[in-house]
Each structure stands twice: as C-alpha cells, then as structure tokens.
Simulated scan of single mutants.
Amino acid sequence: MTPPTSRTWSRRGHTPVIRVRGRSQRLFSIAALTCYKPGERSRLIFRPKRHVDHKRGGRRSFTRTDCRDLLTDAHQQLGAPMVLIWDNLNVHLDARLRAFTDARDWITSIQLPSYSPDLNPVEDIWSLVRRSGQCNTAFTDPDHLIRVLRRRLHEIQYRPELIDGCLAATRLTLTTSRPQPQ
C-alpha cells in the first residue's frame, strides 16, 4: 500500500523523496457502517477482510455475501431497524443484494446520487484513518498494515463525537419518518 504523505521536510533546495517498496496488491478491504440514533451514542461497525487468493485472480473486494453478513450482524448488534444509505459501489448496486435488503422489513435502503462522497459520513471516517493512521508510514508487511488500521478504527469507535462530526460534515440531519401524535 502506498502511504499517503501529510507532511515531510528536507534540506533547503532538496526535493523530499519518499521511497515505497512494491505496488499495491489490494490484500485488504474494509467495509464500515456509521450508525446514528437520536439520544444514543453513535457507533462505527467495521469488518476488515483479507484477500488470501488475490494472486490467483480471486476477488479483491467485499462481495454481496460479505455485505449481507455485515448488515445482519449490525442489525443484531443494534437491535433496531436500519436506514441504509448506500453509495454507488458496484457491490451495493448488485441486484441480489438489493433483493436481500428489499425482503427485510428492518432495512430501508436509500441510494446516494452518483459522485457524492460529501453526503457519505463513512468517507470522512476513511479520511480520519488516512490522516492519523497511515500518514508517513511505510508498512513492513500486511499484518502491520491491518494492525494499524484496526487500532485506528477502534480508537474512532470509542470517540462518538468523531462519528457525530462525520455526520455533521455531510449537513444531513436525523429525522423521523413516523407521523408524530398530535
């Protein structure tokens, strides 16, 4: 994985060069959900996946079944209905995954418009991870990378104000669709 660079320095007149070994082989994927409920602590639920068969032409991303399992686990953990806001990742557009979400009365699914990462709170989570967990780091091996990613995501899990800030950055608000008694 090529590390992002936040700041670097060098002697005056010398261009800083950051050496990186190898190329990205896409060994890991991470899926995440930010969960908000009025009056309760915001949550971050994530699942990393290591792609062990990446060199043999295997799939290098989350599959429909991985997303299905994440949604089922999140529902069990939250114990409440979910309003799911999808971005336009190809697996989110899969007809079989759509059929799964449509068949569950505890999932309401909303599709974001194309090219709208500013409406997705999870994009800000990835930004937080990149800025604090990956900047100026040359990972020694894949296990080092996954340890750093897990540690940073766990830190974010225990700071609900960061998760709330990611929602605030989208300028979306929590509202209820249920009619209020009069």
Rank of each mutant, 00 (worst) to 15 (best):
T175C: 09
N120V: 01
Q134P: 00
A168V: 02
T176Q: 03
R12Y: 10
V129A: 05
F139N: 00
D53R: 13
P38A: 06
G22V: 01
I107P: 10
R96L: 14
R96E: 14
A99P: 08
T170G: 07
V52G: 07
I146V: 12
R47H: 08
V52D: 05
I85A: 04
S116H: 11
V20L: 04
R60W: 03
S109M: 01
S24R: 05
T2E: 11
S6A: 08
K37L: 09
D164L: 02
D118I: 00
T176A: 09
E155W: 07
I146M: 13
S114N: 12
T8N: 10
G58W: 04
V83Y: 05
T176H: 02
R131S: 09
V91C: 07
R26C: 11
H154D: 15
I45C: 02
R178D: 04
W9D: 05
D73E: 14
A32R: 08
R98G: 11
T34L: 03
S127T: 13
T63M: 02
D94Q: 08
C166Y: 05
Y158M: 01
H75D: 06
R159D: 14
A99S: 12
H75G: 03
H51S: 06
R147C: 01
I156H: 04
S61D: 15
R178S: 10
V122I: 15
L84D: 15
A168Q: 14
T175V: 15
S116G: 05
G39P: 07
S42I: 05
A99G: 07
T137H: 13
K55H: 13
R104W: 04
S132L: 00
V17C: 10
Q111D: 14
S61Y: 15
R26T: 15
V129R: 03
L145D: 02
Q77G: 00
V20F: 10
G39H: 07
I45Y: 11
R26Q: 14
F100Y: 15
N88C: 12
R41Q: 13
D87I: 07
I45E: 01
T170D: 12
P179L: 15
S132Y: 09
G79T: 06
P142E: 11
R56K: 07
M1G: 11
S116P: 08
S127A: 14
S10Y: 03
H51V: 02
R152Q: 10
P179H: 12
G79F: 02
Q76A: 14
R47G: 00
W86A: 03
L84M: 13
A169W: 00
L33K: 12
L153R: 04
R96A: 14
H75N: 08
L149W: 07
D102F: 01
L89Q: 13
Q76T: 10
T5P: 00
P113W: 11
R171L: 11
S6L: 10
P121N: 07
D124G: 09
R130G: 08
I125A: 06
M82E: 06
N120P: 01
D53Y: 02
L128E: 05
L93W: 04
R159Q: 13
R96Y: 07
D69Y: 02
D94T: 05
G22K: 00
